[in-house]
Design a protein around this nucleic acid. Structure first.
Length: 165
DNA sequence: GCCAACGTTGGC
DNA sequence: GCCAACGTTGGC
């Protein structure tokens, strides 16, 4: 068994569900439903409680990382796959063998400054980040510890920015 | 709105 | 198992 991951990134269109929507949700939690990509699903299945998650706004102006969420419930069946009225309905899935999972995410913080794609592309430490790969469409993706640290510094919430201690 | 990149489907 | 057609994602 491989080591569990600690850091992730999820994408959401702010016109559909923004980080502020998450902050305003009951208990500041939401189920991350609607993921219909096997690789993204598999990453969600690897998540453990307490894993930290970058929140990215896609189809935004500009597209940017806006804050942090946390895994508050590990993978379980996404009920929208059984709901015929949902546009996430999957006729090929069944309750006895659910095809799609979701996790629950809790709000942690919104960054004082959002980090646009342009800003991220300017960072040598992020050159290999999945988010910045040309043609990358993965809506749930792993983030390395060094990428995580770099992003928190850029956002002004990293260790170097902490005044107390 | 355009379109490149990508994932999925289905004919063969 | 190949690959063309199609649908979707998401930056621009």
């Amino acid at each position: 068994m491989s080591a569990s991951r600690r850091y992730w990134l999820v994408k959401s269109e702010p016109s559909v569900f923004s980080i502020r929507d998450l902050a305003k949700s009951p208990k500041q939690r939401t189920s991350w439903d609607g993921v219909r990509n096997y690789q993204a699903r598999n990453y969600m299945r690897q998540m453990v409680l307490g894993d930290q998650v970058l929140f990215y706004h896609s189809n935004a102006d500009p597209p940017c990382i806006v804050g942090i969420a946390e895994v508050v419930r590990t993978a379980y069946a996404d009920d929208t796959q059984f709901d015929k009225s949902s546009h996430h309905y999957d006729p090929g899935s069944s309750k006895s063998a659910p095809r799609w999972d979701m996790v629950d995410l809790g709000y942690r913080r919104e960054f004082p400054v959002s980090l646009s794609l342009d800003r991220l592309r300017g960072e040598p430490d992020l050159k290999r980040m999945e988010l910045l790969r040309k043609g990358s469409r993965l809506s749930v993706q792993p983030v390395t510890p060094s990428e995580w640290n770099c992003i928190l510094e850029l956002a002004g919430v990293g260790k170097k920015n902490r005044k107390t201690g």
